[in-house]
Design a protein around this nucleic acid. Sequence first.
DNA 1: CTCCAATCTTGTCAGTGGCTAGATTGAAGG
DNA 2: CCTTCAATCTAGCCACTGACAAGATTGGAG
Lengths: 203, 203
Amino acid sequence: MPEKAVSTEVREIDQPAYHHGNLRRAVMDAALQAIGESGPAGWSLRELARRAGVSHAAPAHHFGDKAGLLTAVAAEGFELFADALERASGDVYAVGVAYVRFAIDHRPYFEVMFRPDLYRADDPAMRSARERAAHVLHTTAGKLSPSPEQNRLTTIAAWSLAHGFAGLWLNGSLPESAQGDPETIARALLEFVFGPLATSTSQ
Amino acid sequence: MPEKAVSTEVREIDQPAYHHGNLRRAVMDAALQAIGESGPAGWSLRELARRAGVSHAAPAHHFGDKAGLLTAVAAEGFELFADALERASGDVYAVGVAYVRFAIDHRPYFEVMFRPDLYRADDPAMRSARERAAHVLHTTAGKLSPSPEQNRLTTIAAWSLAHGFAGLWLNGSLPESAQGDPETIARALLEFVFGPLATSTSQ
DNA sequence: CTCCAATCTTGTCAGTGGCTAGATTGAAGG
DNA sequence: CCTTCAATCTAGCCACTGACAAGATTGGAG
């Protein structure tokens, strides 16, 4: 068996790695997996380092500290989130469904993104991505009615509805009657709330 | 100055207390305050013990471990929550507003209650209180329309709306246009969504 | 007065976060 | 080829944490 390990492969055991190849991404991915398994608090930086096969202090070089890592997770999450919403931009139902779908398909991101106490909320990359997502919400939900005041309300209503349903679904708070396909239910909810506005002439 | 401290007073300094008087409640209150200051993860059991003036292992006697303490917080929170909702039972608007109001007035409880990964979700006291609260939601939102299927949707819609708005408001995600009095906005949201259904002859 | 159960303390252990200092590496430039 | 250099990672340390075990203290019941 060969003595030297190829540097691009995953660390086998023991001896120092020094140039991991792409430790930053490896730690991020390990973090996302760990969050998916036991939430944003159910793991330690050292555990991620072990998973990546590096020393306990290696992640600190890339992220500073745990808050820094979660900041990076939130920033990347909001980027993906904004992408998903933009792809549905224009249609309230599609945006709402995309919101819920993102929360469920990318649960680890979502569980961090809306918990600002976990990371550095002043991170510029994260802020710009978050604003990009918010912009989609405002422009698509905010043009359902002519009145600007109504628009603010419509936006907040759609946002709250999608956000609340996603959150309740994720933490298992909903009754068994709502345990079906979340995307279907989300669509039904949106149609229930915004149907009168968009289908008939109504207000 | 007297040598002996009165047992019912808060511990001054140093020497053992042994019978604190009501340590369980003191630790709970310290926990609620700490959660309010820095979230459910921004403190340690040992810190609570110091605040209460007892040794670092004293809280464990009453709560077992940190999850046990948070379980007690969630259980008490759901009791207060159910009480608040029951007080408004029957009126969708009142229940919705009570939901949001509770989240804001009792933020430390709320931040724990809907995060089952923080505590023991199989706790019977907590479960029964939670079901009591859920029952109010079902009975008041679920009788707005004749169809049972519509009722399920109505319930989930009202729940999601209130829950989502409360969550977004608490973590500061809402735009500046929604930074006003949350109770007023919540009422406006509920009227926007359920107005057409209930206002006709009110109820 | 004795015993007992509840309550709290002291002591201990592995694990954690964050820090500093040092080792290793690839690459750039003479 | 050799030196320098910055990026990357390791090694070691410290205060702190959660969890546990064993012992001390207390009020009250018998």
